[in-house]
Simulated scan of single mutants.
Amino acid sequence: MKIELNGKTALITGSTGGIGLAIGKGLAESGATVVLNGRKRERVDAAIADLKAAVPNADVRGVTADLGTADGCNEVVEAEPNVDILVNNVGLFGPHDFFDVPDDTWQQFFDVNVMSGVRLSRAYAPRMQANGWGRIVFMSSESGINIPADMIHYGFTKSANLSVSRGLAKRLSGTGVTVNAVLPGPTLSEGVQDMLREGQEQSGKSMEAFAADFVQNERPSSIIQRAATVEEVANMVVYVCSPLSSATTGAALRVDGGVVDTLT
Results as ranks from 00 to 15, higher is better:
Glu232Tyr: 12
Glu218Val: 11
Ala53His: 12
Phe93Pro: 08
Thr264Asp: 07
Thr248Glu: 05
Gly167Arg: 01
Ser165Gly: 15
Ala58Arg: 08
Pro102Lys: 01
Leu92Phe: 10
Thr64Lys: 04
Leu172Gln: 02
Leu5Lys: 02
Val192Glu: 15
Asn37Gly: 03
Ala209Ile: 01
Gly132Thr: 11
Val215Met: 11
Gly144Gln: 00
Phe98Trp: 08
Val255Ile: 10
Met151Gln: 04
Asp66Met: 09
Glu4Cys: 07
Glu231Asp: 13
Ser203Asp: 04
Pro243His: 12
Val260Ala: 00
Phe156Gln: 09
Leu86Gln: 02
Asp150Arg: 00
Val112Leu: 09
Pro126Cys: 07
Ile136Asp: 09
Asp261Lys: 12
Ser30Tyr: 00
Gly91Asp: 09
Ile224Thr: 12
Leu36Phe: 07
Asp104Asn: 13
Gly191Glu: 08
Asp66Pro: 02
Gln193Ile: 13
Thr248Lys: 00
Phe110Asn: 03
Asn235Phe: 02
Thr229Gln: 10
Lys25Leu: 15
Ser15Gln: 07
Thr105Asp: 15
Val112Ala: 04
Arg226Phe: 09
Val237Lys: 11
Pro81Trp: 01
Asp261Met: 13
Trp133Val: 13
Ala227Ser: 15
Val137Ala: 03
Thr175Glu: 03
Ala212Lys: 10
Gly258His: 06
Met139Arg: 00
Ala79Asp: 06
Gly199Trp: 00
Arg119Asp: 04
Tyr124Arg: 08
Val164Ser: 12
Pro95Asp: 09
Ser221Pro: 02
Asp194Ser: 14
Cys73Tyr: 06
Val63Ser: 02
Leu5Trp: 07
Val90Gln: 04
Val260Leu: 06
Gly117Phe: 00
Ala247Asn: 11
Arg171Asp: 15
